[in-house]
């Protein structure tokens, strides 16, 4: 039982990180109907920027962990947001009217480009960071002497994910910007006729998605303490899976999909063979798609005749 609870906590932590990345996929898909396969790379860049910021601040003599954390997250969000904006502006916008395959192939190409670019500029070796946030709480002690703990870092991840999700939900449902995003997602031409600047709305969507992925990147740096230029590939794929699992286009779906995926991986690693955890994750995806093609929270598209 104690072991189970521990895996639950670990799975939710991992799942929150997947969820944060998945939101970027789902928002971009919702508004321009395109899977941005370079999104995983944005997350990777966010991780690098976070790491560099922390190291730079530490060498500048700042030792306060909250300040390091907040600044790292902010800087990573801003820089990743800039990347997101630039990518949309330079690569996807000119392809807006093109057949669907063109932006998809460009996204894959861009993803490879960004990986190689980071490898060239930052080097191919893994980068490490000593753990910043240590300590935690012991929640319970099992009969077999196994203790369940939640680390302070895991608490930070949960709180941050909750806060970001709440903020995002507020923006989407309550603000002008969110209303414009929903309108542009539903019918871009009509939204423009209502006075919505659709191009700008799409830009903002990319910026928000990229900024959230950057937060996930910083979290991963702090969680594992090890990153390299290639982490975006698998994480991007997992987050994409999470988005599809939850229902592409649905924001709560993205978070739910991320959490489900995190839990599956965590429990599979704990009770079965950890080497096969990716197989388990994708098997779940296949099953969900067979029985609920529109995902857990997606609305099936009904063609009106």
């Amino acid at each position: 039982m104690a072991y189970f609870v521990q895996q639950l906590i670990n799975g939710l932590t991992l799942g929150s990180i997947y969820g944060l990345i998945a939101i970027g996929y789902t928002m971009v898909y919702g508004i321009i109907g395109m899977i941005n396969f370079a999104h995983g790379e944005i997350y990777m860049i966010g991780a690098f920027v976070g790491l560099i910021t922390i190291l730079a601040l530490m060498s500048a003599g700042i030792a306060s962990v909250p300040i390091l954390l907040i600044l790292a997250i902010l800087v990573a969000m801003v820089i990743a947001g800039l990347y997101g904006w630039t990518i949309e502006r330079l690569i996807y916008r000119p392809l807006r009217g093109a057949p669907r395959l063109a932006p998809l192939i460009s996204a894959i190409g861009l993803s490879i480009f960004l990986q190689q670019y980071v490898q060239l500029t930052q080097g191919g070796r893994v980068k490490t960071l000593p753990p910043l946030i240590s300590g935690g709480f012991t929640l319970m002690r099992g009969d077999d002497g196994f203790t369940v703990g939640i680390s302070n870092f895991q608490i930070v991840v949960f709180l941050l994910t909750l806060a970001l999700m709440a903020g995002l939900t507020l923006i989407i449902n309550r603000t002008e910007l969110g209303r414009a995003q929903r309108a542009a997602a539903a019918d871009p031409l009509m939204a423009a006729l209502c006075g919505v600047d659709v191009d700008r709305t799409i830009s903002v969507t990319f910026i928000i998605g990229a900024a959230l992925a950057a937060v996930a990147g910083v979290m991963v740096v702090l969680y594992y303490g090890v990153i390299d230029f290639f982490i975006g590939f698998l994480a991007g794929l997992k987050a994409f899976t999470a988005a599809v699992l939850g229902g592409v286009g649905s924001l709560p779906g993205a978070l739910l999909g991320g959490l489900v995926l995190g839990l599956v991986e965590s429990f599979w690693s704990a009770y079965a063979d950890a080497a096969y955890k990716d197989v388990a994750a994708y098997a779940i995806l296949v099953l969900v798609l067979i029985f609920r093609p529109s995902g857990l929270m997606g609305r099936p598209e009904v063609e009106k005749v």
Binding site: T175, E176, L177, R179, A180, R182, A183, M190, C194, G195
Partner: peptide, 28 residues
């Protein structure tokens, strides 16, 4: 905008004005 409420459909139509007033959602 089929999934938005009746009222929201009319608010989207006033987007330009509201966006100015909300300073790109920040004041909002």
């Amino acid at each position: 905008f089929a999934n938005m409420t009746v009222l929201e459909n009319l608010l989207v139509a006033q987007h330009a004005e509201l966006m100015r007033a909300s300073a790109f959602s920040i004041a909002g």
